[in-house]
Design a protein around this nucleic acid. Structure first.
Length: 262
DNA sequence: ATGACTTCCTTAGGAAGA
């Protein structure tokens, strides 16, 4: 059976971690990659190295912070939109959407929202509302759709090693979780949770307190599938090995494999 | 606990991440 592998990876600075991205692309050969936190301007995006690795790309950069990209093996993604509808005044580069290998791919970097309460948390929730609104149309578009990215939401207490030191954190506030649940209630399948209903799955381990070494992680990078795509889900997982490399991102690549119609 | 660790932007230290 032919499989299409789609991954999301918060790279946390594409220039500082280009060697990790290239090593991972070569070893895992994903067909589609959603990147977040480029932390680079459009001009600084390393498109030459990415083309040399066999990938086409579209990207939405920004100096210092944020920034998203979609990579596709052997083709250029066909861009559908950049930024969410109704968010034209938003100066942050956080959303790209493209048609790639027969699937509509939304690549998102949802605002972190800390500290909360405060304006950053308000911005997170407002951004989330725009996403929920746009996702409803995508869900019913009649096309296979995946919404992949760093959602900056820990959906449940099963998605964190221990809530004790995170209780005030924006990632698990009831408002953040309620937004995520309302998005899921449109019908989306949380692919990693569907594949592993009862296991602890983490996609992020912060740099503090030896959290990687003690597997004290969070599950905040998600791939949501609409009803057209969910029946094709064959496998899902997290590539932990890039998190263990020197100068690693604090996130690990998170992926799904979909059956392809021949 | 205004912490810890890391990058960016720029070369000393603040902002931001989660």
């Amino acid at each position: 059976m032919n499989l299409l592998k789609i991954a999301t990876f918060n790279i946390n600075g594409i220039r500082a971690r280009l060697h990790i991205l290239l090593e991972w692309l070569e070893r895992e050969a994903p067909d589609v990659v959603c990147l977040q936190e480029l932390k680079a301007t459009d001009l600084a995006f390393p498109i030459g190295d990415i083309r040399d690795a066999g990938y086409g790309a579209i990207w939405q950069g920004q100096s210092s912070w944020n920034g998203v990209a979609i990579l596709a093996k052997g083709m250029d993604p066909l861009e559908i939109r950049r930024g969410l509808p109704g968010n034209e005044q938003d100066s942050h580069s956080r959303y790209l959407e493209a048609a790639v290998h027969g699937v509509i791919v939304g690549c998102l970097y949802l605002p972190n929202g800390n500290p909360q309460p405060g304006p950053k948390f308000d911005y997170k929730l407002a951004w989330f509302e725009k996403l929920i609104e746009h996702a409803a149309g995508l869900y019913d578009s009649g096309h296979p759709v995946v919404l992949a990215g760093d959602y900056n939401v820990i959906p449940t207490d099963e998605d964190i090693y221990n809530t004790r030191s995170w209780l005030k954190d924006a990632l698990l506030q009831p408002e953040s979780r309620e937004c995520f649940q309302r998005l899921l209630a449109q019908g989306w399948t949380d692919a990693l949770r569907a594949r592993y209903p009862d296991e602890r799955i983490y996609t992020f381990w912060d740099y503090f307190r030896k959290h990687w070494q003690t597997n004290s992680g969070l599950r905040i990078d998600h791939l949501l599938l609409n009803a057209k795509l969910a029946p094709r889900l064959k496998n899902a997982g997290v590539d932990r090995w890039p998190r263990d490399l020197p100068h690693a991102s604090d996130h690990a690549p998170t992926w799904i494999e979909l059956a392809i119609d021949e």
